[in-house]
Design a protein around this nucleic acid. Structure first.
Lengths: 108, 108
DNA sequence: CGCACTACTCCGTGATACTGTGTAGTGGTA
DNA sequence: TACCACTACACAGTATCACGGAGTAGTGCG
């Protein structure tokens, strides 16, 4: 798939929120998960900027744990604000995708 | 619907391509059409920057016509490159939306 | 000891939608 | 005439976001 970066703006953060909501996890693993899910070109640098942003915006709770497989990991879990933001994201996604699909189908 | 601007990045241009592909039209009318379609916050300034970009990238053919209802209008129509770009846009949209929906549904 | 893999940080870049302001043409109305 | 509303386009500046690249560290394997 050729370049999706522009299309991912605003949605990738929501995807990360969704992944975190499933289980407490960390940056490196989130990147691998996104790659598995078809977001093949998403790299670590991108995910870490999103995670720092989530932390700065108070949407996640962060816990540092030793790894055994390398440096310590920063585990992320959604707090209440994070769960609300995740809800808002899905509402927006639903809204947008329905409008786009309507436009595709003739826009009537 | 609260702010969709980030989510629109990369998709709004495709929407404009789709609208133009339906009929030769002009900036002001495209803005109204987008508003009707549910992209309520999209304003003229945004549409004109997209149209200028499409023209600069050689995806449209432009024809100036007098209006009778105000200043002359610049009508836009897709050329071959524009039709190809439109195709690529829908392929990308299909790819992205299917991945996101899969993630939403549990990501398996 | 070097290399691969894991794991995080940070600075800069490019693309995009948006904001605000300005210009201009037409028509209605007081 | 003077004013306003609606139509129609242009452009400079801003914010946000994903990404690239480089660097730092920890573990284990040959």
């Amino acid at each position: 798939m050729d370049d999706l970066t522009e299309m991912l703006k605003g949605t990738l953060e929501g995807c990360v929120l969704e992944i975190i909501s499933g289980e407490e996890t960390y940056g490196y693993a989130i990147t691998r998960r996104l790659n598995e899910l078809g977001f093949t070109d998403v790299v670590e640098g991108t995910v870490y900027t999103i995670l720092l942003r989530l932390e700065k915006n108070g949407l996640v709770q962060v816990t540092k744990k030793p790894s055994g497989m390398g440096p310590p990991r920063k585990f992320y879990a959604l707090n209440d604000a994070g769960r609300e933001e995740r809800e808002r994201f899905w509402v927006k996604w639903q809204y947008l995708s329905s409008r786009i699909d309507k436009l595709k189908g003739g826009g009537r």
